[in-house]
Nucleic acid binder design. Structure first.
Lengths: 219, 219
DNA sequence: TTTTATTTTTAGACAAAACTAAAAATTTTT
DNA sequence: AAAAATTTTTAGTTTTGTCTAAAAATAAAA
């Protein structure tokens, strides 16, 4: 599917806010996109009609599987261009963002895959942020304690922090293993514990455990 | 000055048509831009207000010095990106145009100059078309008989076809020498002779002479 | 639980760039 | 030079994405 530049900017911003703050409200989006709340309502209505996001008023937006896939594609383009600018054209690493904001909207898949190959399939951009691969997967595992998402973003467990018998015992008991699909449902500020959905059931895991479970995103 | 994508496409098309056919009418432009004549009237009004072109109804459009400068900048971007796509990303030479149509609208001067340097300041794009330098000059000399422009595009004589005594005598008599500024004013279909303005006066030169006078554009 | 404050949406307007249909201007043909 | 054909412009719409101002919905505070 093809999107307008504006639609792409919305998808990207929602994705980033979802990662950073979990909750994405109309006002929050308005602030990051430097637009008025009324404009946000208009555009998100459109994205909702296209099934790119879900929305519950006074609660927040979150991207659908489709929307997340699109966002990751845009982020991939952005970060690959940043890598190109810094590595090949010798831009300063802190000087690439603005130009990449324009380049990211050029959507030719062939172009991006060739650029990726030309750069040697880099895993990180010049700021150290991970570059999604051509299937939208971010290779770099991330601690679920750091993905501060409240909503249904599906992840796959790909690594655990250490091999201590105690950790493995706990993981076994909770039925969490490499390849398990899970999504973070709720975060509790009090003790930073998480409620996650795994194997069709909701379970709670402590912050300490969360710090030792690494996940990657589904495309 | 910054232009919208649409304005840039108009400037570019007018430039190319001016080169190829001399005369650029509303309908001609409509055909090449795949737009309706009414749309052309609207946009050219805008470009005229911005002093990027001149226009006489039923005669044609031609770019002002400003407009030509802008067009050459866009063409420079387009051709540099084409060179990049073909040389570095290994695109087929006949497969680069469409993507370059998008890339050409990214206007960062720094980006383009760095890209130029990275490619080693190429003089031609993969189709063999000359790439304007960062001052808007096209290095490749062109025969004035081939620049089929009817209007005031200022050129500078930079080379003559051969050094025969007869040719040099004629050039001397007409006061045409390397560095002379001239512009083609009129073309006669009958014998392909040209009326050109040089040293503040109008003179006529034969097709045979025109074939042996090479010019480059002023920026 | 009522009032107050905040958040979100609606309604209506605007600018850009395109369109259609019709009118006007100019050129070409007879 | 009048009629016919062509070219160009005008007038009015449409779409996209934004805006302002006001209304409505919800959450927070008293």
């Amino acid at each position: 599917m093809k999107f307008t530049n504006s639609e792409e900017n919305y998808l990207k911003s929602i994705f980033h806010l979802q990662m950073q703050q979990g909750n994405v409200s109309t006002n929050t989006l308005a602030a990051t996109l430097k637009a008025k709340p009324a404009s946000i309502t208009d555009m998100t209505k459109k994205l909702n009609a296209k099934k790119l996001l879900h929305y519950k008023p006074y609660y927040g937006f979150y991207l659908s599987t489709e929307g997340r896939k699109a966002a990751l594609e845009i982020i991939r383009r952005h970060r690959l261009w940043e890598a190109f600018l810094a590595e090949k054209l010798e831009f300063q690493w802190d000087d690439v963002h603005e130009i990449a904001e324009e380049l990211e909207h050029i959507s030719s898949k062939k172009l991006i895959d060739k650029l990726d190959a030309y750069l040697g399939f880099p895993k990180f951009d010049p700021h150290g942020d991970p570059i999604p691969d051509n299937k939208g997967k971010i290779k770099e595992p991330r601690k679920i304690s750091l993905l501060q998402m409240q909503t249904d973003v599906p992840c796959i467990v790909c690594q655990v922090g250490n091999d201590s018998a105690e950790l493995l015992e706990l993981l076994k008991h909770k039925k969490i293993s490499i390849g398990s699909k899970l999504s973070v449902k709720k975060r509790f500020e009090y003790d930073h514990s998480l409620e996650i959905k795994i194997n069709q059931s909701l379970i709670t895991i402590s912050n300490q455990l969360a710090k030792n479970v690494f996940v990657t995103y589904e495309s």
